[in-house]
């Protein structure tokens, strides 16, 4: 237990100090936090519940558009802001900017969660590949539909309110970093708390054998929907922050970016080890580092390098890094190892 407290406080201190130790990397660090949030929330479905969703990008994109729209709409007419690709210029005062952003984030969290609840009842009735394909369609459809809605900029994109002029040049980077870091901590703690309750066991039961769980008297649909709403809540928050950070929302390339973010969140969770608490965190961190490295040093070949990495993961770490560690050092994970049994397994091979 003591060890854990030291570990958590070390991470927390590092998280708070990071933007000051690496001032030039603030944007990358903020994006890292966002990636970790996405991968933790994907893991609730994909890892714990066994429902491989590609639809979480829907909540991320919704959060992004909602946050920006509310932030603008609270003080200025939204339709004029986005008209003609955003020709008119309105300037938020610092107070308006932060107020709007705060309220926007609240909408970005709550609305996607409600939508997850509404669509969950029909979609979560599907299983396996059918569920995956259906959710894949959600993100694509949302991208195309939002690309036609004039009030949020349609194909022209939506320029989010620029950060107000304050004296410090670094303020914008720090603001968005701490926003994303706080949401990350909040997400992690919430998911950790949930994982220590019966709720997680129900999710695992659904993953392992849904019919049996149902037969045991568990209302699986209720749990599936609640699980999805939790993911949607945090995905929406992540999206809202990301929108402000990027400064420009495009329907298919930034908001409902299923091709990149939607796939990355799955990859990261699998890389780290799905179905574990720390797996997505480790996976996202490594993935981000690799990706940035490849982008710098294999210009033009970055996706080839990323592809090789994925092949290596699948061949050498099929259970992800956490799964591999667990196999290697089962004692550390609190599993009782029967030495004789273990040896017998080895000789069997």
């Amino acid at each position: 237990m003591n060890k854990n407290i030291i570990l958590y406080s070390a991470i927390l201190i590092f998280g708070i100090a990071a933007p000051f130790i690496f001032p030039a990397f603030k944007v990358q660090l903020s994006i890292l936090c966002i990636l970790i949030i996405l991968s933790i929330t994907w893991n609730v479905q994909g890892g714990e519940m066994g429902y491989n969703t590609f639809g979480n990008i829907l909540f991320y994109g919704l959060g992004m558009y909602l946050c920006a729209s509310v932030q603008v709409g609270m003080f200025f007419p939204l339709a004029e802001w986005t008209e003609g690709g955003g020709e008119k210029t309105f300037v938020h005062t610092p107070a308006q900017f932060f107020q709007g952003f705060g309220v926007g984030l609240a909408f970005a969290a709550v609305v996607p969660a409600i939508i997850a609840g509404l669509i969950g009842y029909s979609i979560l009735g599907l299983r396996g590949h059918y569920f995956a394909i259906c959710t894949l369609g959600l993100g694509v459809a949302a991208g195309e539909i939002s690309g036609g809605i004039e009030i949020i900029g349609a194909g022209q994109g939506f320029t989010t309110p620029p950060f107000p002029n304050v004296d410090r040049l670094e303020a914008r980077g720090e603001f968005f970093y701490f926003c994303s870091f706080i949401v990350l901590v909040f997400t992690f703690l919430a998911v950790k708390a949930i994982y220590s309750t019966r709720f997680k066991l129900v999710l695992n039961a659904i993953r392992d054998n849904e019919d049996k769980a149902e037969a045991m008297g568990i209302q699986t649909m209720k749990y599936k929907i609640i699980g999805w709403m939790i993911s949607a809540f945090f995905c929406g928050l992540a999206g809202g922050i990301m929108g402000g950070l990027v400064g420009y929302i495009d329907s298919t390339d930034v908001a409902f970016d299923g091709r990149e973010m939607g796939v990355f969140m799955v990859l990261m969770a699998i890389l780290g080890g799905k179905g574990t608490l720390w797996g997505p965190v480790i996976g996202a961190t490594l993935f981000h580092i690799f990706k940035e490295g490849f982008w710098t040093f294999f210009l033009g070949w970055q996706y080839v390098a990323l592809g090789v990495l994925i092949v290596v993961i699948v061949i050498y770490f099929p259970e992800g890094i956490m799964g591999w560690l667990r196999e290697k050092y089962p004692e550390r994970f609190g599993e009782v190892v029967d030495e004789a049994d273990r040896k017998a397994q080895v000789t069997l091979k």
Binding site: D253, V254, D257, W295, Q302
Partner: peptide, 8 residues
């Protein structure tokens, strides 16, 4: 750098 045709 390569922006991959992506605004983000």
């Amino acid at each position: 750098y390569d922006d991959e045709s992506n605004p983000k």
